[in-house]
Design a protein around this nucleic acid. Structure first.
Lengths: 196, 196
DNA sequence: CCACTTGTGCAACGACCGGTTCAGAATAGA
DNA sequence: TCTATTCTGAACCGGTCGTTGCACAAGTGG
């Protein structure tokens, strides 16, 4: 019983996500979150407890709706040989688009890692887990692309690809061409390794 | 004639640099800058014109006193073969220390690149130039370490090392072991390339 | 139909910040 | 001494944070 919620929680969280993504946690003002979500101040607090609660929900939504869908082809039971190249290409297109549509560019979590909120242990763990998840997925892609590679070589390639992807996220806001070049480098490395 | 400045500009800028480094531009409050520099609000405005002016001075100081000294061995006339390895080792030690001494960890400019102030064109250019300077220096180190490598190979290694270094800066705040692993990977890549 | 539960809107709170400006005190050299 | 420069303390306006209180609207189960 009782009145039912008038808003779609998912929509609200998505809208808040955009704000956090483009402004960062600290600079995301409550009025901005109100405007983006269409919710009133007190409804936000009622539903999420605090600004931080809304942020946590936004991060989860980012992982579930942005990060993981993109990684899915890399974590299925049998990964296609060209899955990693596909991932890099998709990311390239996304970063290229983000250049035009300014605002939500780069990666919410990479942006967060340099912000003051990254001092919070829970946030640190979230970002660190995200990196691990990314690296594991990329490693699976490497193994699928290079079935003859040994474990150490796959590890190394996965590490390098992860760094290139993270760098691309870091750079896309200040120097988009360099960011894209990072992704191209990753693809080229894969090619080289296949040839050899 | 007239009263003379009672503070050492360099000291003040260094103190402000620490604040911006650990809090980011947006979250560095004027009171915090006052406390760190020992200057009065109005003295800051008198000397630097604005919060932004102080930030710009802090960034210059960061480049001149933190970044470039570390890169110097890589940009001399004849670079030692082990200069790049030395750079990576030095950085490793610095990032390890930064883990204990929390606050100024990572890289001021990498942290800045994900913050709202990175929307400013001048800031974007500064960060982008910094990346280029870093890459050029690393490339010189690669060439010195691998005199037999051709240009394309040096380019590729320089790109990858740059990404690994930037990733290390990004990660050190949230996951120091992974950050150090990035630097180790760069050193290992260099070793591999030498053997081959 | 009505009581009860829950969501919503509006307003306000105290404390802080940004970014700046101003008048006035202090200090140096001519 | 006087003049130029600097330093200091205080104040300004408009804004934000993060939260809470309260009255009202709107559904739900009995």
């Amino acid at each position: 019983m009782g009145r039912s919620q008038a808003f779609e929680t998912d929509h609200v969280v998505r809208a808040a996500r955009e704000v956090f993504w483009s402004s960062g946690y600290e600079s995301a003002s409550i009025p901005a979150l109100e405007a983006a979500t269409g919710l009133n101040r007190s409804s936000i607090y009622h539903a999420f407890g605090s600004k931080r609660g809304l942020f946590d929900a936004a991060v989860q939504s980012y992982l579930d709706e942005v990060v993981r869908p993109r990684l899915r082809p890399l974590v299925t039971d049998d990964v296609a040989p060209d899955a990693l190249v596909g991932y890099l290409g998709g990311l390239r297109a996304a970063l290229g688009r983000a250049h035009e549509i300014q605002g939500t560019s780069g990666c919410l979590l990479v942006n967060t890692s340099g912000a003051p909120i990254a001092r919070d242990d829970a946030v640190r763990r979230t970002v660190s887990d995200y990196r691990a998840e990314l690296r594991d997925a990329l490693r699976r892609g490497v193994v699928a692309a290079l079935p003859d590679a040994d474990g150490a070589e796959a590890d190394r390639l996965a590490d390098v690809c992860t760094a290139l992807v993270i760098s691309a996220f870091t750079l896309v806001r200040v120097d988009p061409p360099s960011a894209l070049h990072c992704l191209d480098t990753a693809a080229a490395l894969l090619d080289d390794a296949r040839d050899r």
